[in-house]
């Protein structure tokens, strides 16, 4: 029996076209987020690895790497945060590659939904995952002696900048994921570009320790400026100052890099999604 308030014929909701992109993206993101509490193994591995990194770097390298104006642990944490958020974007690569091998993508493609929604949903759910991982890391950091010195608002801004950067990286990851033939390949390819991105930076060592040519690369690596901006916002030691625009204006350069990445990879990923067909 149907209740009198619901009509027998489907009733369509109305909203502007761009509104549907967000509406549909959120529905797809919810699909991924609902899975998280149901597959606890995901959490175990997503959390245990960064925590191990914190402990390893803090206690193994902590004494070996001197940092001007503070302890290495204080210096380290922003780097670990950025590395974790970077690697978090590999979820998008694997998730999309997995969808491509399954019938669910046929379902999505047969629905009158926004064509950017499947990718947008993945990159959105990635930020949520990233945020949760980050909260655990922040407490781990506090436990090993890392502190926020410039007050909570600036710390929140630092986290927001990092999540925005992570969102931009997820679109690169999405674009890669849509080229993957299967999840096995995606598991490797999804990570491979993240190693140079996260290590060729100021995440773990100050930039002045690099040889000159490598230093230039690390300096212009947007992840370095995100890390520097965070260190400044947290009031952590930043290491000796080096060179050009990315390191003198880290916040502005970080934002610029995110916007450029999004402008390039959002259209690339959406176009690739439209063309990809599950089988």
């Amino acid at each position: 029996m149907t209740s009198p308030s619901v009509s027998a014929e489907p009733t369509r909701a109305r909203r502007p076209l761009w509104g549907w992109a967000f509406h549909d993206g959120w529905i797809v993101a919810l699909r991924d987020l609902r899975k998280l509490p149901r597959v606890p193994e995901i959490w175990f591995f997503a959390l245990i690895q960064p925590v191990i990194f914190v402990l390893l770097f803090a206690f193994v390298f902590g004494g070996a790497i001197p940092v001007e104006g503070g302890s290495y642990r204080e210096f380290l944490m922003a780097g670990i945060f950025a590395q974790t958020i970077g690697f978090n974007s590999a979820n998008t690569t694997v998730g999309l590659a997995d969808d491509l091998t399954k019938g669910i993508l046929d379902r999505f493609r047969s629905l009158p939904m926004s064509s950017s929604a499947v990718v947008l949903g993945r990159t959105t759910s990635d930020i949520v995952r990233g945020l949760i991982t980050l909260i655990v890391l922040i407490f781990t950091g506090l436990a090993v002696g890392w502190r926020i010195h410039n007050g909570l608002p600036k710390a929140v801004l630092a986290v927001a900048l990092l999540l925005f950067f992570g969102f931009a990286l997820s679109w690169i990851a999405a674009w890669i994921g849509l080229y993957m033939p299967n999840t096995e390949v995606a598991n490797t390819a999804g990570l491979i570009w993240l190693f140079p991105l996260t290590f060729l930076s100021n995440s773990f060592v100050p930039l002045d320790t690099y040889p000159a040519w490598l230093q230039t690369i690390a300096e212009w690596n947007p992840l370095s400026s995100v890390v520097l901006a965070m260190r400044q916002l947290f009031g952590n030691p930043v290491g000796p100052p080096v060179g050009g625009f990315p390191q003198t204006q880290p916040f502005a350069y970080s934002l610029l890099a995110c916007v450029v990445i999004l402008l390039v990879f959002v259209p690339l990923a959406v176009r690739k999604y439209r063309r990809s067909s599950a089988r």
Partner: peptide, 17 residues
């Protein structure tokens, strides 16, 4: 409900359906 939402149907209606 996910599919209903992606058809852009009203939530109440979808729940019922």
């Amino acid at each position: 409900e996910m599919v209903g939402g992606l058809y852009h149907l009203e939530r109440q209606w979808v729940r019922h359906r």
